[in-house]
Design a protein around this nucleic acid. Structure first.
Length: 324
DNA sequence: AATACCCGCAACCGCAGGCAT
DNA sequence: TATGCCTGCGGTTGCGGGTAT
């Protein structure tokens, strides 16, 4: 028996998501949490395949996403992680809170690759280009993660004192092997080696690793308190959002939203991660969002006002940039 | 101003792995 | 063990905006 396709493609919509579709998906996930993705489109009233819904959610709509270009520090981390892990984008992304594998992959292909080449570094092997041309043909050979290359080369990033100290710390934390199968142990060890210094950097940024984030339930989404309630103009990074919002159909822009820019300025920099409940205006706005649906049947399902949910935890930047 | 070209990013595609039966 | 389902992953594509001519 052949494998069933992930979805019946007949009659399913493809291409860019519209604001209306996003609204339905957000509505559904916020209400029901993430469940069987195959069932999501049907239940949410979307003419999309479940896979498409999952991608849209994980890569764009997820509340804990950051938007905008990667910071210099994030870029360094990506380079370092890529040197160790190769093209395992999801693993790399798991070390960068709020970033998706797709985002990192795109950023790597469009920005970092070029930068490294300019610097005379082969983006595949992370070795000096003059050396690699003699030894390998980078683009034709599968990438060998640096761990497997015994980390012979000296990459500029490793000269960063922060990373050096992390590596030293790493060595100290290496544990003797047990009787577990060697392949498993090397894999685990590799992971451990990579994770340890990065967890430190997570602490440094006072953030969390997306791998550690459980499935987001509606009652877990929190928003930072808004120092200013005046709805401000959108930030520059919001222009990088989906083309679906390029016109006036950006339904979320009309909401009365906390000023996340102010929040970021005031709190992010000094590592103040305090979170509070949404203010009433915001709750009312989102409530409007949830209930503003022309499908009466689904309104019955979702008719619990959002402000009845105990707490809504949310990352400021992601919702500020990604949605609002 | 119009057209061609380039680039970045969102979305798609197909495969692989994990899990249940 | 075999089979089917679901999800995650990495590579690729194609659209849309920006820039050059």
């Amino acid at each position: 028996m052949g494998r069933q396709p992930c979805c019946d493609k007949v009659g399913l919509k493809k291409g860019p998501w519209t604001a209306e579709e996003d609204k339905k998906l957000i509505n559904f996930i916020l209400t029901n949490g993430q469940c069987c993705w195959r069932a999501v489109p049907k239940l949410a009233g979307l003419l999309r395949c479940g896979k498409s819904c999952r991608l849209r959610w994980t890569n764009y709509l997820r509340p804990d996403l950051k938007r905008g270009l990667l910071s210099e520090y994030e870029e360094k981390m990506v380079i370092d992680l890529h040197a160790q892990l190769g093209n395992r984008w999801s693993k790399i992304a798991s070390h960068l809170p709020g970033r998706t594998d797709n985002e990192i992959k795109n950023h790597w292909n469009t920005h970092i690759k070029k930068k490294l080449k300019k610097m005379g570094i082969d983006p595949v092997t992370h070795k000096s280009l003059s050396n690699t041309t003699e030894q390998t043909q980078p683009d034709e050979q599968p990438h060998q993660p640096m761990q497997e290359q015994h980390q012979q080369q000296s990459f500029p990033l490793e000269k960063d004192p922060k990373f050096e100290s992390q590596n030293d710390q790493n060595k100290e934390q290496e544990k003797p092997e047990t009787s577990i199968e060697s392949s498993t142990i090397t894999e685990a060890k590799e992971e451990e080696q990579i994770m340890t210094p990065l967890f430190d950097s997570m602490e440094l940024m006072n953030e969390f690793c997306t791998d550690e984030v459980p499935i987001i339930e509606p009652n877990e989404i929190l928003v930072p308190s808004a120092p200013s309630t005046s709805p401000t103009t959108t930030t520059t990074s919001s222009s990088t959002t989906s083309s679906s919002y390029s016109n006036s159909s950006n339904f979320l822009e009309d909401l009365l939203l906390p000023d996340f820019d102010d929040y970021n300025d005031n709190n992010i920099d000094n590592n103040n991660s305090s979170m509070t409940l949404w203010d009433d205006d915001f709750i009312r706005s989102l409530n409007w969002l949830i209930n503003d649906d022309d499908d009466g049947d689904r309104n019955q399902v979702f008719d619990a006002p959002l402000n009845q949910y105990p707490k809504v935890i949310m990352d400021s930047e992601s919702w500020a940039y990604g949605l609002f």
